[in-house]
Design a protein around this nucleic acid. Structure first.
Lengths: 310, 310
DNA sequence: ATACTTTATTTAAACGTTTAAATAGACGAG
DNA sequence: CTCGTCTATTTAAACGTTTAAATAAAGTAT
């Protein structure tokens, strides 16, 4: 691999000059700049990160704290990581994966990001190395989605709204419940615990079972919210859209209303915010990204205007 | 952050001695060794990776080539990455994510891994930086699963076996088809294209549609193989187990036979193999990991012995 | 006791880069 | 023609390690 000295030798200048050209940290004459750049391209030179870091204190690396339990229940972690990698790469950075519980040196990376929605009280304990709260937090909250879903149903004339939640074993699941209750409270509607069902797990047939539990109870409902890909698939299968249904993911079933989660934007925003912070910019501590509700064609009255059909 | 010089000063020795103690690369007297170790623990010293690397040519980092299209169709990429991270961390390494298409310096990491099953002819083009073929490949092949599924059904007396494949847009999907045909050929059974259905996508209702296409055709079948989580869920829902069914993932539905994919073992094995190779060991170029077939309670005759019930 | 071997420790160079300080060169002003 | 100023370039130190070579200390054989 070509070093900066090779470039300097080929260009016939000292290697400090090469450094100045590449970082333009000092004025360099047009002639030598061209000589250097020619040598750089000829040798295919790329600076050696470890060497650079020794002096500059920049690893050009962003650390990702990876908890053993996946804290992302609404979006796909793999997609999130891929997009974060893309965002970092286009800024010249790389992503470094580290278990959240490990005791790695903090200066292994220039900054650390993490994901999930660190709003549930029991979540912080997951982070051992560095609490994500010190970092720029970009949040995408299911409570917002739940609230929006309830408000939409109310706006459409519903009064008794059922909720099939995520099982509480899933981190962050409580956000749905919180948003649901908050929306009811703000709308002045009472809370009926009989309208809320918590399935055993987030699987297809748990959704079916939860739905049947709700249907079999004496509690009448005129609208329904279902959390979780698998659960929603099961519910939608047996429900036949007798009442308006809003599910957590818009792709779950054609025609059903659901949310689109901004996975890519989330990852990109978080990486960008961190890089801005590293450059010394004072940034907002918390940025909220909202999932958008995609109104489907099934289960809603025709006159449902004022919403974002997609 | 404490450096090796701080440790040396506190222990009252030269910093070379500290290095010798920590790497035990030279004999050191018991007395000084203790002094040094005491200083190390007192200061909480951890060696600075970038500094070490400059000399040693070891970044203690394993690069992961991340293609834009997820090549893993059978296992969850997020789990795979988490387990690879765990394996690397326990060996003192970190994982560095890099887009497969990027032109990063090869010496950014000590070695590179990638995943997927690079056996489909159209796959290699995805890898720009370094073809995974130079690295220790740990493969977990869907063709094996398909073959095993067909063999199991044949062994159980079936003759005309249906296949609902993954849509060809999914990388690696062809492996199922290949295994299916190979098994038929080896068993001396003819291939009937009417028994194979390719859905439009890997979604719940595509599974239902594919099943109905197969059922509506004049082609009789006495066993069925279904690929893909979502597809299988849909198929199993409408099928009611009239014939023995084997799906790609054992967790899809209770009682249905399916495969358990060794995600964790896969990631750990790949990382371990790479580390062994870095240590100079000559290792097998390709290691095969096989998914295990979990025979369910539905759809098989009672006398199905000789198989691994789980 | 002297010379030689062995063992423990230190000195110093090296890795690839950045950057402060020194130097050389060109230009104007006196 | 000399001095000072400005600009372009080089020299050298520094970053945190490893490791080859040098040195010191101790032990063994003569």
């Amino acid at each position: 691999m070509a070093t900066i000295k090779d470039v300097a030798q080929l260009a016939g200048v000292s290697f400090a000059t090469v450094s100045y050209v590449l970082n333009d940290s000092m004025p360099v004459s047009e002639a030598t700049r061209n000589k250097v750049l020619a040598a750089v391209t000829k040798l295919g030179y790329q600076p050696h990160r470890q060497g650079r870091n020794l002096q500059r204190q920049r690893t050009l690396t962003i650390g990702v704290l990876l908890p053993q339990a996946n804290l992302l229940c609404e979006v796909d972690l793999a997609t999130w990581l891929l997009e974060a990698t893309n965002a970092a790469t286009s800024a010249g950075y790389s992503l470094l994966l580290q278990p959240a519980e490990s005791q790695a040196r903090g200066d292994l990376a220039d900054g650390w990001i993490s994901f999930g929605t660190p709003l549930d009280p029991q979540l912080p304990q997951v982070w051992a190395l560095a609490p994500p709260f010190d970092q720029p937090a970009v949040l995408c909250d299911a409570a917002f989605a739940a609230q929006r879903a309830v408000e939409t149903l109310i706006h459409s004339g519903m009064q008794r709204i059922g909720l099939i939640t995520l099982p509480r074993s899933i981190p962050g699941s409580a956000r749905w419940y919180l948003g649901y209750r908050r929306a009811l409270r703000q709308a002045g509607l009472g809370f009926d615990p009989g309208l809320v069902v918590e399935p055993a797990a987030n699987r297809f047939h748990d959704g079916v079972a939860a739905y049947e539990t709700l249907a079999a109870s004496e509690n009448d409902y005129d609208g329904l919210i279902v959390c979780g890909h698998q659960l929603a698939t099961g519910v939608v299968m047996v429900d036949h859209a007798k009442v308006p249904v809003i599910v957590s993911h818009s792709s779950s079933q054609r025609g059903i209303s659901g949310f689109r989660w901004p996975t890519e934007l989330w990852a990109h925003t978080l990486v960008r915010k961190l890089l801005q912070q590293l450059d010394g910019a004072a940034i907002a501590h918390r940025t909220w990204l909202n999932p958008s509700l995609v109104i489907g064609s099934l289960g809603f009255k025709e006159d449902l205007d004022g919403f974002n059909y997609v």
